[in-house]
């Protein structure tokens, strides 16, 4: 079980906030998200991935209890 969270404008577009799911890699999590939200997987693939506070890659593996955060590109203030 991993926790998947989504931040950024993609969260507002898809309405998805967070979920608990079984996923063994980031790419698998993206596929899950695409299915759950009905959005194209590409949109999630283009997010930045943060696994337990550290930057991850699309190919990174996930372990039990991990927290995966997806961030869509940000702007400025």
């Amino acid at each position: 079980m991993v926790t998947i969270k989504l931040f950024g404008s993609l969260r507002l577009k898809t309405g998805f906030k967070e979920m608990q799911a079984y996923a063994s890699s980031v790419s698998e999590a993206c596929a899950l998200l695409a299915r759950a939200t009905g959005h194209d997987k590409k949109e999630f693939k283009n997010c930045l991935f943060v696994i337990n506070g550290k930057q991850g890659k699309y190919s990174s593996a996930l372990a039990e209890g991990d927290e995966l955060v997806l961030m869509s590109p940000s702007g400025g203030g």
């Binding site: 404008s9 507002l12 955060v69 961030m71």
Partner: peptide, 24 residues
Amino acid sequence: HPLTGDQLPRLGTAGLVSTMQMNG
């Protein structure tokens, strides 16, 4: 543009809080 046409209108400057959190 993804920043001026999407991110800033949707979240305003406040949208950065999460990004900054992730980056420490």
